[in-house]
């Protein structure tokens, strides 16, 4: 009896898994996920993948058939436990880098990823230089303007008197 139960229970479980596995492999998106992490991965992937046919929409936002089919593929792969990298590789092996909204880092995109940082460095350097230049004058200027200030007031005083006539 026990031996039969030992056989039966695992095979029943196995059958259940088989059945649920079959529904996961369904052609229509079930949109059920094992956990929140998988769901988040799915949402992020369909946000980052581009619809190949559309005029600039991600898979999440597109009504096109190809987008629906690709979403289904992403869903299938996420539920199979494929990594994000593997899923993205799958996509760009078939559709090229066009399908990735986040460009891969490779020699042809070094300029794209590194230039903004360089620009920022240049900007900070420009700010630094201008701040240095301006502040090194400031102390001298303030001294000068005190003497000039007196002169200006004297001149103003004269011109005020001139205007009153």
């Amino acid at each position: 009896m026990l031996a039969v139960a030992n056989l039966l229970i695992p095979s029943l479980l196995g059958l259940m898994i088989l059945v649920s596995g079959a529904s996961v492999a369904n052609t229509v998106e079930d949109l059920t996920f094992a956990d929140d992490a998988s769901r988040d991965r799915y949402q992020n992937l369909i946000d980052e993948l581009r619809c190949p046919q559309c005029l600039n929409t991600n898979l999440a936002g597109s009504d096109a058939m190809i987008a629906a089919n690709l979403r289904r593929e992403v869903y299938r792969m996420v539920t199979l436990g494929e990594t994000d990298e593997a899923i993205k590789s799958f996509m760009y092996e078939r559709y090229g880098d066009f399908i990735l909204y986040r460009p891969r880092l490779m020699p042809s995109t070094w300029a794209l990823w590194l230039l903004p940082g360089v620009l920022l460095m240049i900007g900070i350097w420009v700010w630094w230089v201008m701040a240095r230049l301006s502040s090194s004058d400031s102390d001298d200027e303030m001294q000068m303007s005190e003497t000039d200030l007196a002169e200006v007031e004297r001149l103003l005083g004269e011109s005020h008197r001139a205007n009153d006539t």
Binding site: N58, G96, Y101, R102
Partner: peptide, 10 residues
């Protein structure tokens, strides 16, 4: 002739 996309993640 190769195409690339630069989108929101970037």
């Amino acid at each position: 002739g190769l195409k690339i996309s630069v989108g929101p993640p970037y």
